[in-house]
């Protein structure tokens, strides 16, 4: 399987690579978001949109990638990547009054969801975010697959496409079930 990570100039991108290596996924390319061309992506089987600073609107390429490949390739968005998926389908973001940087929280997951196979219903996850998807703005085609102990949307999946967004960081050492979540995406 050929995997592409689109790197939004983040400092956790190589933690994602290391997480993939730990589950024996080695055919991975990392390309920075301003060095990728849409046509190049066709050669890959699955796409991961990395976390990153700022807002999805700072990187229009993310929306273009989702637009072009949402129906043909599995896509996993992490943090900023998750927010890019939500915004592509018309959702809005809210700036958190208390931002969460380096915190670990309990979240409730839908154990029927693709990403949460073989995972307990409550898991500890690492968070780095100032923005969150506004639950009331989500269209019906996106459903919430986990929420935090502060009722913040922690992940979403598309009802028809193999398209998933996670607000927390599976690649963080604060997320013990990160490897299983990533395996579930690779097996999806």
């Amino acid at each position: 399987m050929k995997l592409l990570i689109i790197d939004n100039y983040d400092s956790f991108t190589y933690n994602i690579l290391e997480l993939l290596r730990s589950i024996n996924c080695r055919n991975v390319s990392i390309v920075k978001n301003d060095q990728i061309q849409l046509s190049q992506i066709a050669a890959f089987d699955k796409i991961i949109l990395s976390p990153g600073p700022g807002l999805p609107s700072d990187y229009p390429i993310l929306d273009a990638v989702i637009q072009n490949y949402k129906s043909s390739k599995p896509i996993l968005g992490v943090c900023l990547g998750h927010q890019a998926i939500a915004m592509h389908f018309g959702s809005t973001l809210t700036n958190l009054p208390d931002v969460c940087h380096g915190q670990s929280h309990d979240i409730q997951v839908d154990t029927n969801a693709v990403l949460y196979q073989n995972i307990p219903s409550t898991i500890r996850v690492g968070l780095y975010h100032s923005w969150a998807v506004d639950a009331s703005s989500l269209p019906s085609e996106l459903h919430i697959t986990s929420v935090s102990d502060s009722s913040i949307v922690m992940s979403i999946s598309h009802s028809r496409y193999d398209l998933h967004g996670i607000q927390f960081h599976p690649e963080s050492f604060l997320t013990p079930h990160g490897a299983t979540i990533m395996k579930n995406f690779l097996n999806s």
């Binding site: 400092s11 956790f12 991108t13 190589y14 933690n15 290391e18 940087h101 380096g102 915190q103 670990s104 690492g126 780095y128 960081h169 963080s172 050492f173 604060l174």
Partner: peptide, 10 residues
């Protein structure tokens, strides 16, 4: 936590 995740990445 943040510095540990940053240096794990590096």
């Amino acid at each position: 936590n943040t510095i540990v995740d940053l240096l794990r990445n590096d």
